[in-house]
């Protein structure tokens, strides 16, 4: 049976796959599509789904004037940057230690870190709240970011990536004069570049969208990220309508959407490569 003449069965299964994928895509894109529709129409037009309803940019003007968005953008940008920087730093060092150094209890310690993956972050909210308050980090960017920096997922991912690097590369670097920091910097980190890229993209997307924890740990506009700002803005008591909320939603997710469109290829490739290892 050649490839040129697929059987009836294989043809139907391909069709089913395509239909399923399409269905999922439509379901996934629907809220976004609605937001896009609503943001450019009056509230009446948005809900009537009248294709010829007049298009307007008023919603964006109203939304932008309704809250300190530049501050929220700044806060979110600082937040994802601080978290990513902390994660890269801690996970790199921990991953390297678990991949290449043997110290008493290293296996047990690694197991404990892996166990962390089984704990829902929400379970820890009260404990984290108490800890962040004790550290005097309440209502600060660092306070929102701190609980996520020593990421178990990141440590695991980088440990696996480092373990996949041939030993002889490290030995060659050591013969050529590298100490352990030099080996890490010149051999392991460059070798794990695709993993870093994948991890960074996931981390940024996750923390750009994170809501519950920042909501609890912030109470001023100086530290609120976009998600919390948007929820305050859209709260029923503020009296804004669905069209304005849609407009605000669109510009809060815009940077992420644009980044995804730019990095789409790297995003997918990074995941494939990280998975193959």
């Amino acid at each position: 049976m050649s490839i040129a003449t697929p059987t009836y069965a294989s043809r139907t299964s391909v069709t089913l796959d395509a239909v399923g994928a399409l269905l999922l895509a439509v379901l996934w894109i629907a809220p976004l599509a609605f937001a896009l529709w609503a943001a450019f129409h009056t509230p009446q037009g948005a809900l009537s789904f009248d294709l010829f309803a007049p298009v307007t940019l008023d919603n964006f003007r109203t939304a932008w004037a309704g809250a300190p968005w530049p501050r929220y953008f700044l806060n979110t940008t600082m937040l994802v940057t601080v978290i990513l920087a902390g994660q890269l730093f801690f996970c790199t060092l921990a991953g390297y230690a678990f991949a290449r150094f043997h110290f008493p209890g290293s296996d047990l310690l690694f197991m404990l870190i892996l166990l962390q993956l089984f704990i829902l972050p929400e379970v820890l909210i009260v404990e984290n709240y108490a800890m962040v308050s004790r550290l005097g980090l309440f209502d600060s960017i660092l306070g929102i970011g701190a609980p996520y920096m020593a990421s178990a997922f990141g440590i695991f991912l980088l440990r696996q990536a480092f373990k996949g690097v041939p030993r002889e590369l490290e030995e060659a670097a050591r013969v050529e004069g590298c100490g352990w920091t030099g080996v890490l910097w010149r051999v392991y980190i460059p070798a794990a570049k695709p993993v870093y890229l994948a991890y960074a993209l996931v981390s940024i997307a996750t923390h750009w969208n994170n809501f519950l924890w920042p909501l609890i740990v912030t109470n001023s506009n100086e530290s609120r990220p976009l998600t919390v700002g948007l929820s305050l803005f859209a709260a029923p008591e503020s009296g804004v309508n669905i069209a304005v909320i849609s407009a605000a939603t669109l510009f809060t997710i815009a940077p992420l959407l644009v980044a995804f469109l730019i990095f789409q290829r790297q995003f997918i490739q990074a995941f494939l490569r990280a998975g193959i290892r």
């Binding site: 041939p166 013969v175 100490g179």
Partner: peptide, 21 residues
């Protein structure tokens, strides 16, 4: 002493070339 301080070089069976360089 660590390898770096012994004043020697080494050729490995797998060549151990750095793939990113």
């Amino acid at each position: 002493l660590p390898p770096a301080h012994r004043g020697l070089s080494m050729v490995f069976q797998s060549y151990a070339l750095f793939p990113h360089l």
